[in-house]
């Protein structure tokens, strides 16, 4: 018995390229479409739940949309968003500027790491919100208190990511760098820093997530503007739960947008590997 195997490239297969293009288009649409479907059905479900339960407290999607419109009219919306973003920008950038170099140094000098690590490991698990009473006493009702808390929230994850990143740089890279006669500062700038960049980028994104959560909580106590303040003020000054939910929604959407931006930065940092 003889069997014959044939592999032939037919015209159909040559046209396969079109198929790939088509499926990538389909992928893009479904990337956008599927989340939109989920959002739409969640809003519908929300509306139906409010409607059929007859709740007087929880607002419907329409109430919330109206509340957002109201905020925009009073130009409070943009001021609160601006205030919140400015605070998170200050605290977070301070944490990046101090945390990245410190983390790299702690990873690079094992003795420094051993000396400082216990302190970091003790401070790290303390929720930044636990510092709130002290922050209010130290800084009063001012922008400094929330900025301080955001700084604390993002500083430790950044330090830990950078330290760990440096410690896990493949020894081969360092060996190669030394072999080519690099001085210690050159080794740092030409090998260590580029090698840890992707890991630091991940740490930065994780840290931002924590910072954003802490921002809202800190604004409920220490200041009189911002998205956290909006929520607490809406409840205190007249049980406006439509405004409460509006604030929650704005915080969520802004958090999503900022996370997407950082995700993009992260994939830029790691795209070369």
């Amino acid at each position: 018995m003889k069997k014959k195997f044939e592999v032939r490239s037919s015209n159909e297969e040559v046209r396969g390229g079109g198929g790939i293009l088509h499926s990538s288009f389909a992928l893009r649409t479904s990337n956008l479409l599927l989340p939109l479907v989920t959002a739409a059905s969640s809003i519908l479900l929300w509306h139906a739940a409010v409607r059929f339960s007859g709740t007087k407290i929880f607002p419907s999607p329409f109430d919330v949309a109206r509340a957002i419109g109201q905020l925009a009219d009073q130009s409070l919306l943009w001021r609160y968003i601006g205030d919140s973003l400015a605070r998170v920008a200050c605290g977070y950038s301070l944490a990046v500027l101090l945390g990245v170099p410190l983390g790299i140094l702690l990873g690079w000098y094992p003795d420094a790491g051993r000396a400082v690590n216990p302190l970091i490991q003790i401070l790290r698990p303390i929720s930044p919100l636990a510092w709130m009473p002290l922050a209010v006493i130290w800084f009063g009702v001012s922008n400094v208190a929330p900025i301080f808390l955001i700084f604390l929230a993002s500083f430790f994850p950044i330090v830990v990511a950078a330290t760990h990143g440096v410690r896990t740089v493949p020894p081969m890279f360092l060996q190669a760098g030394r072999n080519f006669g690099l001085t210690a500062p050159q080794l740092m700038s030409r090998v260590v820093v580029p090698a840890v960049l992707p890991r630091i980028a991940i740490g930065l994104r994780v840290a931002f997530g924590v910072a954003w959560v802490v921002l809202v909580a800190s604004e409920m106590i220490a200041v009189d503007s911002g998205l956290g303040y909006l929520i607490i003020d809406a409840r205190n000054a007249g049980k406006r739960y439509d405004l409460v939910v509006a604030g929650m929604l704005i915080i969520g959407v802004l958090g999503l947008i900022l996370d997407m931006l950082l995700r993009r930065a992260e994939s830029w940092a790691s795209e070369r590997r």
């Binding site: 060996q175 080519f180 960049l197 070369r272």
Partner: peptide, 20 residues
């Protein structure tokens, strides 16, 4: 006593720098 650019060590291909 130490590595020297006059004598270069070649690793398996994992030694290339991925960021360059």
């Amino acid at each position: 006593i130490s590595p020297d650019p006059r004598r270069i060590f070649v690793f398996q291909e994992r030694g290339v720098f991925p960021w360059l």
